[in-house]
Amino acid sequence: MEFLLENILNLVGFLVGLAIGIMSYIGFRNTGSPTLFRLTIAFSSISLGFFVIWTGYMVEDFVTKTGSVERWIQTLGIAIQTVGYFFIAFSHSIKSFFPKSSYFRSVGIIPLFLVSSVQLEHIFRSVSFILLAYGAIETMLSYFDNKNKGAISVSVGLALLALGEFVGWYSFVFPESILYSASMIIKIGGLIALFIPVSKVPLTRIKFDDGLE
């Protein structure tokens, strides 16, 4: 059951992240917006992170058949996702703290994580939780400013991903309970909520235009 849910979660995460990443990239190509560039990096990372873990499960299922995924693959995938969550939170922090700074708006900061613990996965999950919670709160605050209903969906999505991380972390305390499965179901719900506003973008009116710099 957990194996199936894990596969569904990682596949949905990969596809949703990829769809939002591509949409952000098309937006960046059409408008040159640094915000959309950061969203491209964010969701490309999230998508890649889910893909790495999904690949790990597939390799385990069809090739190695060891009964468990290599720990380093899981940690690598979560680390890549954390970079994505960082860029979402980073975009909000720029908007909140440096609204007029051309340096931060154009250049950005390359995230650097220096860790040496064997508990890397737990660290990344903790960082992800904080970044997701921050992103969810900022997105909800922006809803109060502009009343854009899509922001509610994104905020709920990020909040569910954060809750999923929290419940997933708690499952380490109670390993035999239903908490881990619950965390994956919550995360899948979060990814679907993230995708709802993106699915409403009118694709037929968007195209690349190489003539625009």
Partner: peptide
């Protein structure tokens, strides 16, 4: 279109 898209993420 992309202003609305960014708005959905609480960004501009």
């Amino acid at each position: 279109t992309f202003t609305n898209f960014a708005d959905d993420f609480g960004l501009s």
